[in-house]
Simulated scan of single mutants.
Amino acid sequence: MILFFIPFALFILFFINTMTNSLCLQRDIPEERQPKVFRTINVLVTILLISSYVEVSFT
């Protein structure tokens, strides 16, 4: 199960970061705020991925 989930999680994080970059460019977010936007989104997505892994593993 974990052999499937880790590549899937990495793909999701890469795809979300690509979409976040597009959002920053489209909304003209200043460069000094962009790291905070990326960090917030990455932390939230990581929490979602961990919770989904725990749910799938232990149910």
Rank of each mutant, 00 (worst) to 15 (best):
T59V: 15
P35H: 11
P7S: 09
I47W: 02
T18F: 09
T20Y: 02
L13Q: 08
V45K: 00
Q34I: 15
F4R: 15
P30I: 15
I41S: 05
C24A: 14
F4E: 15
V43G: 00
T46L: 15
L13E: 06
L44W: 01
R27F: 14
L13M: 10
L44T: 05
M1K: 10
F4C: 10
K36S: 15
F38E: 04
T18W: 05
E55D: 11
V56F: 06
I29G: 01
F8W: 05
R27K: 14
T46Q: 06
K36E: 15
L48D: 00
L25I: 04
I29L: 05
D28T: 14
V45E: 05
S57H: 03
P30A: 15
F14W: 11
I6V: 15
E32Y: 09
T20R: 01
L23W: 11
D28Y: 13
I47T: 09
R27M: 14
I50Y: 02
I29A: 06
Q34D: 02
Q34N: 05
L23V: 15
T20S: 07
Q26V: 14
M1Y: 10
V56H: 06
T20P: 01
P35C: 08
M19W: 06
N21R: 10
Y53C: 00
R27P: 00
V43R: 04
V37N: 09
R27I: 11
F5Q: 06
S57I: 03
F14P: 00
M19C: 08
Y53R: 01
P7M: 08
V37R: 02
T20D: 05
M1V: 10
T59A: 12
I6Q: 05
S22I: 07
L48T: 10
F4S: 12
L23A: 13
R33K: 09
L44Q: 03
F8G: 02
F8N: 07
T40G: 10
F5M: 05
V54F: 04
E32A: 06
I50R: 01
F15Y: 12
L49H: 00
P35I: 11
S22T: 07
V43K: 08
F15P: 01
I12A: 14
F58D: 06
L48G: 08
I6C: 07
Y53M: 05
R39F: 09
N17R: 06
I29W: 04
V56E: 03
T18E: 04
S52M: 03
L25K: 13
L3G: 02
M19N: 09
L10V: 09
T18N: 04
I29R: 01
L49D: 01
F4G: 13
C24L: 08
E31D: 14
C24I: 15
L13I: 01
L23H: 15
F14D: 13
F14E: 06
P35N: 14
F4K: 12
V37L: 12
F15I: 07
I2H: 13
T40Y: 13
T46P: 02
I50A: 07
T59Q: 13
P7G: 09
R33V: 05
E55A: 12
I29K: 01
I29P: 00
